[in-house]
């Protein structure tokens, strides 16, 4: 006799290009044309996925990905702390795919080592894609507890045939309210209104409580 697990997949339609797989907590997005920010985010994620480096995309690009009508100079990636060897191997793949450091045209082991030390110190490094400096990828190691939670509880986004992982929407909304600039509050409101039906209310309240922000400005 063969025993198997049968998953009951519940798909929720959010818009005519976005569906939410409630069981696996995956958002599926279909985009016929990509923005420059999409192109660079997908190219970078593809390599992180292939190299088994855990990551989460945070900040502005999360709302841009779903259609917010503004642009961003960078796509912010938080990655798990990896060894120098693994980082060097990651850089090799990134260089091959057309990425380079923003701060240096060199692709030597020495430059890679310097970049690694910056990450270890908690600094961010940037990669450009192609010959122009923007948009670029801003990358940092997970240093804070929120960085680590963003990675551990990241949401998987299927964009056409590719995969991206973003920090949980509930955390992103609360965090943006915490940052508090007009742009951040607008982004929070955008995510909240668009995904209202699929947000985990308890998680959102928990993050708002922990970050001492309230949802009032999103509701009115």
């Amino acid at each position: 006799m063969i025993y198997g697990i049968v998953y009951c997949v519940t798909m929720i339609r959010i818009t005519n290009t976005i569906e939410y797989d409630e069981t696996r907590r995956i958002i599926k997005v279909r985009k016929e044309k990509l923005t420059m920010e999409d192109t660079i985010a997908l190219a970078f994620s593809r390599i992180l996925e292939k190299e088994n480096v855990r990551y989460a995309i945070v900040a502005g690009y999360v709302s841009l990905l779903f259609g917010r009508s503004r642009r961003s100079d960078d796509v912010d990636f938080i990655i798990e702390n990896i060894s120098l060897g693994k980082f060097a191997s990651l850089c090799e793949k990134l260089f091959k795919a057309g990425f380079k450091f923003l701060h240096s045209n060199e692709k030597t082991l020495e430059t890679v080592r310097m970049a690694y030390h910056s990450l270890e110190k908690g600094d961010r490094i940037r990669f450009t894609f192609g010959e122009y400096p923007i948009p670029n990828v801003e990358m940092k190691f997970a240093t804070t507890r929120l960085d680590k939670i963003s990675i551990e509880e990241s949401m998987m986004i299927h964009v056409n045939e590719d995969v991206l992982r973003i920090s949980p929407l509930e955390l992103q909304i609360a965090y943006k309210l915490y940052l508090g600039s007009e742009k951040d509050v607008e982004d929070a409101r955008f995510l909240y209104k668009l995904f209202k039906n699929i947000l985990d209310g308890e998680k959102l309240s928990k993050w708002c409580r922990l970050l001492d922000v309230n949802l009032k400005c999103l509701e009115s």
Partner: peptide, 12 residues
Amino acid sequence: HRKWFEIQAEWS
């Protein structure tokens, strides 16, 4: 949303 994405990509 399809139309919106198209406009967004064109604008970008």
